[in-house]
Nucleic acid binder design. Structure first.
Lengths: 343, 343
DNA sequence: CTGTTAGCGCCTTCAG
DNA sequence: CTGAAGGCGCTAACAG
């Protein structure tokens, strides 16, 4: 069954295609009566304009592309949620592409997207990406780009990220405030800016209280979770004076949780742990971890809004501006389990 | 900067647009020499065919639409992962739409999708959906539809779901096999088919071993997690003979975990718990829960493959077939924590 | 207010 | 093997 098109509507109504088109767009230069007639028939026949013909003609797809490393990371799932919300409100569609942190794939996706399939791109850089000429080429292709979460400073465009530095500082300051003297920092090993910024926040919070930085307390994690637990365990054994842990990423927070368990160190009595986490379930741990939750939904929505604003205004290219949202320090506790909060 | 098109390539090469088009498609009726020339220039100028012009002409978008209630549920995130994988392998693009379990929104999305924007649709029905005429209308619009996870039996098309009955049966049989005599079933209270099927599996597994069903051991959960923990606690107090728990959904499994904790009942020594869960982090609980993991990734990929097969073969409409994948019973244990597996 | 005309970029007969 | 021509469905001048 072929879908109905303007031509059919026009013939049926004894009007020209142009008039029908205008009526459907509620143009001011068509009589109310004809508009009504047209709309009635369109509704009756379930007319739906062909998106591609329209896109071809107007040279705009009403679609944005979202390129992320993975969707199974809860942060990105939440971000997509925010993106979809903003897109829908503006009548835009959302194409999803997963890089799986593979550079080659990221390049291929970007190249493909230059075929006009999208009006703009939201991207969180793959961790394996070094060379960024593929991203730079988007500028000359006239496709607006907005980074979120994992950004590349070299590209002059809008970037929306968690306030990593401030989060690291707050988490550490919090641990100091509740009496910790030796605070370890578990960080991700790669060179992503988020790790560095969080670490700087950690260092500055310590310095602000007159604590000298101790490199021995800083543990770079690996991609192997089991190995991480071992490393953390070793650290805790080597340094029994550690009474606070700040974990830069979720899986390290969980690793710290287990390492403490295995060593019989109680949380929060013996060791207080604060970690980044976006997973609800982590709050159900017993004892619960004190977590820093990234405003993932807001980040996604904000990034999408910035992008859409540029797209709508017919590509007035995006100014180099970095938008940073504060993250919230949340003392998560299971609502059901009667334990004292670690805070 | 306008993107290059066939016309520009043709002029530059002194060829006709038709020849260039054919060369780029590796048509057999064009000399190897010209093909090479064309390809070289195309690569040099970073030519990328306009997706919309192509779609309009060929009447196919190389895009599938995925309509799901939410993306922040880990099951759906995993499913999208599988869908994207299958789509990419076939050179298809993935449009994401979230209904947030809102019927109106589902209808609006489907209506919009009839504009030819997608070649096929993968859908997991919104829980609020009763009337399904919008889904039926897809048939006459010639857009293939495949259900996954949340299906509607009335629509004659392919459906891909978890094998709920078998999972419930297996989980219960497992508890019986490890010596449980009184097995409680925590189930979701709504009327979704998944709950009923899992419960039937539970009942049949009990019957197979000569156990009479005991309604007092069946606890319908609420949407309030804290309340659920209370209810489970009451149940365990009232029935101290309970030595096994089968939880139909993730949050009830977590609830059972906490209830046991509060009552000082050890897992798995006093009570063995098996629950559905898709979250990795749940496996990190200590003691770990024995979980049944839905093959979400596989479900998504399989659903996408079925859809794409139909789409590729130029819409030979999908036969009414229900594809069910077995779920796997996985004794999850933290790789790092030295506890005996509950199995 | 309505109709005619001319493409958007690409693919695909039909002629050479 | 290559070129010329027509049209996918829609929109946007330009006329009336």
């Amino acid at each position: 069954m072929k879908p109905v098109n303007l031509k059919q509507l026009a013939e049926e109504l004894g009007l020209s295609i142009a008039t029908v088109s205008r009526a459907l767009q509620d143009s001011h230069e068509v009589s109310a009566a004809t508009k009504e007639r047209v709309r009635a028939l369109a509704a009756e026949l379930h007319y739906e304009p062909n998106a591609y013909a329209s896109s071809l003609r107007r040279n705009q797809s009403k679609t944005i592309g979202v390129v992320i490393p993975k969707v199974t990371n809860h942060f990105f799932a939440l971000a997509i949620n925010g993106i979809e919300e903003a897109a829908r409100q503006s009548g835009y569609h959302v194409l999803i592409y997963l890089t799986h942190d593979d550079y080659e794939r990221e390049v291929a996706i970007i190249q493909h997207l230059k075929g006009g399939r999208v009006d703009g791109i939201l991207l969180s850089v793959a961790s394996g990406t070094e060379d960024i000429t593929h991203l730079e080429s988007l500028r000359e292709a006239g496709i607006p780009l907005v980074f979120f979460d994992r950004v590349r400073a070299e590209i002059a465009t809008a970037k929306v990220t968690t306030n990593d530095y401030e989060s690291g500082r707050l988490a550490t300051a919090h641990l100091l405030a509740v009496g910790c003297q030796r605070i370890a920092h578990l960080l991700i090993s790669n060179t992503l800016s988020i790790g560095q910024n969080r670490h700087q926040g950690y260092l500055d919070a310590l310095a602000a209280q007159g604590h000298a930085p101790d490199p021995d307390l800083v543990l770079p994690g690996t991609t192997d979770n089991a190995r991480n637990v071992q490393l953390i365990e070793e650290l805790l054994r080597r340094r029994p004076d550690i009474d606070g842990i700040f974990a830069s990423v979720e899986r390290l927070a969980v690793g710290a949780y287990h390492a403490c368990h295995r060593l019989g160190r109680r949380i929060p009595e013996d060791v207080k742990v604060v970690g980044f986490s976006n997973l609800e379930s982590v709050s159900l741990f017993d004892p619960p971890l004190t977590t820093i939750t990234q405003p993932a939904h807001d980040i996604g929505r904000e990034a999408a809004r910035i992008l859409l604003r540029a797209v709508e205004k017919k590509r007035p290219v995006l100014p180099t501006q970095s938008v940073v949202l504060a993250s919230e320090l949340v003392p998560r506790r299971s609502t059901a389990v009667a334990v004292s909060s670690p805070l």
